[in-house]
Amino acid sequence: MGTPLGKFIRAKRDSIQPESLGLPSRGRRRSPGLRRVDLATWAGISVEYLARIEQGRDRNPSPTVISMLADALRLDPSERKHLRYLAKITSGECSVHVRPVPPPRHVRPSVRQTLRLLEPGVAIVTNRLGDILAFTSGYQSVTSGTGLLDAALPNLNRYLFTDLRARTFFVDWEDVADEQTFDLWQAPSLENLEWLTAELTPVAGPDFTRRLNRHVVPRRGVLRLHHPAGHQMRLLRETLELPTDAQQLVIFLPADDQTAESIEELQRQSHGRLRSIS
Rank of each mutant, 00 (worst) to 15 (best):
T201D: 03
T201H: 02
P202A: 02
V203L: 03
P206Y: 06
D207C: 02
T209H: 04
T209G: 03
T209A: 02
T209P: 00
R214D: 13
H215C: 01
V216E: 15
V216R: 14
V216N: 11
P218T: 01
P218R: 02
P218D: 04
P218L: 01
P218F: 00
P218V: 06
R219T: 13
G221Y: 06
G221C: 03
G221D: 04
V222Q: 12
L223S: 09
R224P: 00
L225Q: 06
L225S: 03
H226Q: 14
H227I: 09
H227V: 08
P228T: 02
A229P: 00
A229M: 13
G230C: 03
H231M: 09
Q232K: 12
L235Q: 07
R237I: 15
E238Q: 13
E238H: 10
T239N: 12
L240C: 05
L240W: 05
L242M: 04
P243K: 02
T244N: 08
D245F: 00
D245I: 01
A246W: 08
A246Y: 12
A246F: 12
A246G: 06
Q247P: 02
Q247S: 07
Q248A: 12
Q248W: 07
Q248Y: 11
Q248K: 11
V250I: 14
I251L: 10
F252T: 05
P254L: 06
P254M: 05
A255V: 04
Q258M: 10
T259G: 06
E261Q: 15
